[in-house]
């Protein structure tokens, strides 16, 4: 994804440090895939970015891939497509999973890959050609990233639906009409199905400063 804006807060840094510590127990070199799944606006992109930076400081090359780039229907057509196809069309099947699995495979094999890359300013889908040869860690982030098969480590980021709703209104990326609300509900439902297979679970509600007995 191009031209995304992230906001780094102390809680994100703390979460990233926690994840990093746990990942390093499992990562013994070779090719390693981390998925960061979770609710809308829960801080997935920020966490990915911080992990990328932390890996770099340890001399480990990591590449971040946002699954937002892998929707089958491109951004400028998606609103209409969703309206035409109804709420049942929202969720897992909106993504090009064969392509996602293919990219993971190319990463494992040290190959060059051709990837879709959305520009959030133009909403056009560009193409990125990248070489996975010198990349040790692939960080795949997205609502349903835990559904990626063959990931080595899965992070799940929690946020209640109510907060998602507010966070969404706050970032004001999209106007919140009633259909949009239904979409969020459906996405939330699918997101929560991934909860049980996570290696680590980040919940800012109970995180550090707001934790109490």
């Amino acid at each position: 994804m191009q031209n995304d804006i992230i906001t780094v807060k102390d809680t994100h840094v703390q979460a990233a440090e926690l994840v990093m510590e746990d990942v390093l127990k499992k990562f013994k070199g070779g090719k390693f895939i981390i998925t960061i799944a979770g609710e809308v606006s829960s801080g997935k992109s920020t966490l990915s970015y911080l992990l990328g930076r932390m890996f770099k400081m340890k001399g480990i090359n990591s590449k971040i891939i946002d699954l937002v780039d892998y929707y089958i229907v491109p951004p400028l057509e998606r609103r209409k497509w969703r309206a035409d196809n109804g709420i049942k069309s929202i969720g897992f099947d909106e993504y090009n999973w064969p392509l996602i699995e293919e990219v993971m495979e190319k990463f494992r094999k040290d190959e060059q890959a051709t990837l879709p890359l959305v520009d959030l300013l133009t909403d056009h889908v560009d193409t990125l050609i990248t070489d996975f040869k010198d990349i040790q860690v692939l960080i795949m982030t997205g609502l349903y990233a835990s559904f990626c098969k063959k990931a080595d480590y899965r992070v799940f980021m929690e946020l209640t639906y109510r907060e998602t709703y507010e966070a969404q209104a706050y970032t004001a990326r999209e106007g919140l009409d009633s259909f949009r609300k239904k979409i969020l509900e459906k996405e939330h439902k699918v997101v929560q199905e991934q909860k049980n297979n996570a290696d680590i679970y980040i919940d800012f509600n109970t995180f550090m400063n707001s934790y109490h007995l």
Binding site: N61, S62, K63, D119, D126, D131
Partner: peptide, 13 residues
């Protein structure tokens, strides 16, 4: 890519 410090190729229309 500022994280990998590699130069990828971007194709845009």
């Amino acid at each position: 890519d500022l994280v990998t410090e590699q130069v990828d190729e971007l194709i845009t229309d």
